[in-house]
Design a protein around this nucleic acid. Sequence first.
DNA 1: AATATATTTAGCATTTTTGCTAAATATATA
DNA 2: TATATATTTAGCAAAAATGCTAAATATATT
Lengths: 100, 100
Amino acid sequence: MAPKKTIGEQQLEDFDLVFKALAHPSRRNVLTVLQARGGTMTAGDIVSRFSYAWPTMTRHLQQLEQAGLISVDKKSREQYYTLNAARLNEVMNNWLKWFE
Amino acid sequence: MAPKKTIGEQQLEDFDLVFKALAHPSRRNVLTVLQARGGTMTAGDIVSRFSYAWPTMTRHLQQLEQAGLISVDKKSREQYYTLNAARLNEVMNNWLKWFE
DNA sequence: AATATATTTAGCATTTTTGCTAAATATATA
DNA sequence: TATATATTTAGCAAAAATGCTAAATATATT
């Protein structure tokens, strides 16, 4: 049978993934670089702006993707990563609601 | 001489400490428990609501304190921890500004 | 003074995260 | 078909985070 998550459980899971993704400064930087450059970049463009080996960045990007903060679109050989700012704001504001 | 941090450097450091503190679900839970119970609790009250050994919770609380998300006031034997919701909202909103 | 209460510090083992290099895959170009 | 380009997967070592127990500290009570 399907996992059947309640809305609260889903939200808890979202908070977990998103806060874990945002825990590393370089992952936060990826998001701001994406935002600053219009929202979409290829993996290679992103890698070239950081001093990480490519596989290291690949993994950071995957974590951001699992959290839903970026999405990928493959075009021929290149991966286009797009910032999901709406999701970022939504999840964070949902969490911050508890502290208003 | 004094470290002389620019405002931007200070903010970067804030983001680092705050996001690191929020990375662990139990630390986030401590904040919501504090909020739900009026904003202030003793260390013992907090410990009793979680299934951690006391030293483990002590360390979580110290991390939250270093991030400025809670503050402590010692009264005789007890430590009163108080949620700093204003700081939480301020730091988070400062960061989220980049993605508006 | 002796004991009880509230909490922290020290030290250690386990798990998770991070970053790297080497190898693999997939698509494009010559 | 051979080679170049873009990127991921596998596997490992080092660093950081997490949780525990035992011991220490500090204050209150008897």
